[in-house]
Write a protein that binds this DNA or RNA. Structure first.
Lengths: 290, 290
DNA sequence: CGAATCCTCTGACTAAAGTCAGAGGAATGG
DNA sequence: CCATTCCTCTGACTTTAGTCAGAGGATTCG
């Protein structure tokens, strides 16, 4: 705890203060933050509001001001005339590059007093901290399998399988998973969100005294954060709550990391319990305590 | 640079925001910061001002407010009736403990979603980052050897020697260093400051085409930050600017880390060039390029 | 001893950041 | 097609954080 406390104090002092100073180019910080979050292809005002956690009135005023300075342009959304989309103008993009380069100056000021060896160590430690704080930021939520977030994950999942399996992957040829089987009360589907973006998923199907884990997937850009482990643990807990004494799953021989993970989590190989054409291995984990 | 940028953004978002939220117990953040900096035995208002970088009027008002809430007490300084001392009341101390424990909650919220292995890695990476950012915070400044900061360092230095040398250490028995020898133009004395506190020192005496490094010391609580290296590099640069072609120094056989450092910096052992009774080794480094 | 300097405080401002209560147009569900 | 809900915006606030110019004692320097 002391370690974390010291880190927080130091970092808010050293970076927080400098950051404001550097990014504050004449413009209030709030406006700069907005500039950061507006991507080139535009964002909904609504999304901006939730991302930055700002009051609607306040954000509206900030945007008007950035609009007056011709840094952003506002236009009504095509699909829904109530919502407005914000996008950066050419001038806004230039301004953002300027912010970026100031941010680099800040980085340089942190690194410059250090020896090359120290710099390297600082960078690698910063990388670790970023990665692990990001991991902590990810949030698992149970959602309906018809939710767009789930559909998005499944499509990405199928694409991965098609790429990895020796014979490609055709969802039609595989054992189907009905939506009702992976939504309450017959099962559950969870999605891992990072910054509101779905980056992983997993489902469980209850079968009385055992349960089946299906479609566990983590986005490539969220690998290494331990999300797969968290998803598995969450699904197992749901299985147990539903009365399962064991969890089973099937997998393809090419998914070696997945197989390694199952082993690490205490799964043991068992004979085929279904006729999934793409599966080579079937695993089971005993959920009974002790 | 990208690495640092990502780190800054993540950390200010994740910690900065939470920090304010957690520490902002109903009281504005400025007031909380003041509460943090007031130690139990009291501080001068003047010092508080410089530590927090606040305007005198602003700080005065913050203190009145904390005084109204009976968290701090103000009393005139005994020695100088113009300055006022601030100290925490019993209630103020309780309030600060409450802040501490909120800070722990924040720490817990960062760690709780992680697996034990990840926690360990996060803590150690945070430690590295803290250490290296602290190292970057240290500032070397040339000061007059009569400056209290230098005297403080030298006393600590002598105490260390007395402890480490086989026969103890008596400054009277050692070769004397006159103040004039280590101040411009005959030499220089530099001090490393961390948060305004002196944590290391070093001096150089010019002797025409060579120079002598004396009294290089780093406070135990600032070890491992690479300060000794920075002090040595600074002194060598000053020697070179003054026309020296080589730098020499003497040292005691018990100061093994120092001896290792000299080796790493390119010093080589030479015959005794003086009659310092406490020295066992004499070193020299060629400053000529190439 | 008197002028200059120091230290803290008060009064009068300002800018930033944010809150709250609607107004008014657009979409939607029954 | 009408009531309800949504989404953004405007107006009228408040709090926080900070600046600046002195006032008014205390100390120090010549």
């Amino acid at each position: 705890m002391g370690q974390v406390r010291r880190f927080n104090r130091l970092v808010t002092r050293r970076i927080g203060v400098l950051d404001e100073e550097y990014l504050g180019r004449a413009r209030p910080l709030g406006a700069s933050r907005v500039l950061w979050e507006v991507s080139a292809d535009g964002v909904d005002v609504r999304e901006l509001r939730s991302r930055l956690g700002l009051d609607s009135g306040y954000l509206s005023r900030l945007l008007t001001r950035l609009g007056d300075e011709q840094l952003v342009a506002l236009s009504p959304d095509k699909a829904d005339n109530r919502v407005r989309r914000v996008r950066l103008t050419a001038r806004g993009r230039r301004e953002r590059e300027a912010l970026d380069s100031r941010s680099d100056e800040l980085a340089a000021s942190l690194l410059s007093p250090l020896s090359p060896g120290q710099r390297e160590r600082l960078l690698s430690a910063m990388g670790q901290v970023s990665e692990l704080l990001t991991a902590g930021l990810a949030e698992l939520r149970a959602v309906d399998p018809a939710d767009p977030a789930v559909q998005e994950c499944w499509l990405a999942y199928f694409a991965t399988l098609a790429e990895r399996f020796d014979a490609g992957f055709d969802p039609e040829a595989s054992r189907q998973v009905g939506l009702d089987e992976v939504r309450s009360p017959r099962g559950a589907t969870i999605v891992a969100f990072l910054d509101g973006r779905p980056v992983g998923c997993g489902s469980v199907k209850h079968h009385g005294d055992w349960a089946e884990v299906k479609r566990v997937w983590v986005s490539p850009d969220a690998r290494g954060l331990g999300l797969a482990r968290r998803i598995m643990a969450d699904l197992e807990a749901r299985a147990q709550d539903a009365g399962a004494l064991a969890v089973r799953l099937d997998t393809n021989r090419n998914l070696t990391e997945a197989i390694a993970l199952y082993g690490a989590l205490g799964y043991g190989e068992i004979p085929a319990y279904n006729d999934e054409p793409y599966a080579h291995h079937w695993f089971e984990k005993d959920l009974r305590p002790g």
